[in-house]
Design a protein around this nucleic acid. Structure first.
Lengths: 191, 191
DNA sequence: TCCGCTAGAGAACGATCGTTCTCCGCGTAT
DNA sequence: ATACGCGGAGAACGATCGTTCTCTAGCGGA
């Protein structure tokens, strides 16, 4: 029999792929079982309910997101580039064939009305991202109002790219971010 | 018996409210029937399937959105204010108690994997909005790249406000839009 | 008055959902 | 070798879904 951790990983990554591609409610636990190759009994031993599996998927997505952003950040040399790094990560992501927008936003829209735990998990990820952007802006010596503005561009890019399917959306967002950063650091800017 | 058009309006606005609040798949046709006060037989005479009802709801939302934007536009005096008008409309909308983000984005995330008609309807609304913003930028004599940037801010504001629940998101988006517009019209701006 | 038609209320239907249970095959200890 | 226990496959269960069907009450015309 496969190791518990392996089984857990297989179930989570399979559920992630299926839920993300088709929506949570459109995918039955049977489909997860079949594609993951882990019996229902085992799945329910690892995750007490489908809701718990969804939360595990969100945690998995958070890790992937954080890793992707960290990778893009590692390639940035200046504080200014570090503020823009997230848009480079988005550009990569949007080019993937199975890109279908931000899973947090999608799950929130589908489930937040029924599951407060999902709503809370999504809120946590988004506030964590905003805090991260705020730190980058702070490190670059930028004004406090810049961070939520950059975050708005990143969020908007994700939904727009999901719906239009146009990877160039990331470039538009990056260009806008460059303008906002330039204005925030220009000598004519006040506050 | 109530008039066909009245019945149709009641069903659509009830379905709109329920689908938007709880998600489409979480709301059964029985709930729509009960709350709208129109028999299932009648509903299915008006809308051949739930998918058709969802499309009718999306059309209804498009009309509401267009009317709201038009109202905000009517209050704007200068071409610059007209580009910013959409953010004033967003500010109003975000303050509503039942605000739960952009229905098009929510429905897309939930259903686009299963219904190509819903996916197409959402895409149409978003491209129509982008075209509208592009027209406003054009009328103000702004550069072409400005329109998608402003649209990104509007999209990002909607999802961010939905998740954080903070109506001030609209003000952040508006401030960013003012900066982008200022930069696009400044004499130092080059292409 | 009686007949035929319409529309509403909701039962019925088949499918599918999340979740649990049963059964069986296999590995291991004695 | 045999008894035991664990885990996998998938049947079973009750609920609920979208959709259709049945039954009945009310109404207009001969």
């Amino acid at each position: 029999m496969i190791d518990e951790e392996t089984a857990r990983d297989q179930v989570v990554s399979t559920a992630d792929r299926l839920f993300y591609a088709h929506g949570v409610q459109a995918v039955g636990m049977d489909a997860v079982r079949t594609e993951a190759g882990v019996s229902l009994k085992r799945i329910y031993a690892l995750f007490p309910s489908k809701d718990d599996l969804v939360l595990a998927v969100l945690r998995h997505r958070t890790e992937q997101w954080d890793a992707g952003v960290a990778r893009a950040l590692a390639a940035a040399r200046t504080p200014r580039d570090r503020m823009l790094a997230v848009f480079d990560f988005l550009a990569e992501w949007f080019r993937e064939d199975d890109f279908r927008g931000c899973a947090f936003i999608n799950f929130f829209g589908e489930l937040a009305g029924g599951s407060s735990r999902v709503a809370e998990a999504v809120r946590e990820q988004k506030t964590s991202f905003q805090r991260h952007v705020a730190d980058l802006v702070c490190e670059a010596g930028g004004p406090g109002y810049l961070a939520p503005q950059l975050a708005l561009l990143a969020e908007g890019a994700q939904t727009t790219a999901a719906i239009t399917g146009d990877p160039a959306t990331a470039a538009h967002a990056r260009a806008a971010a460059e303008t906002l950063i330039g204005a925030a650091f220009s000598p004519t800017s006040r506050f």
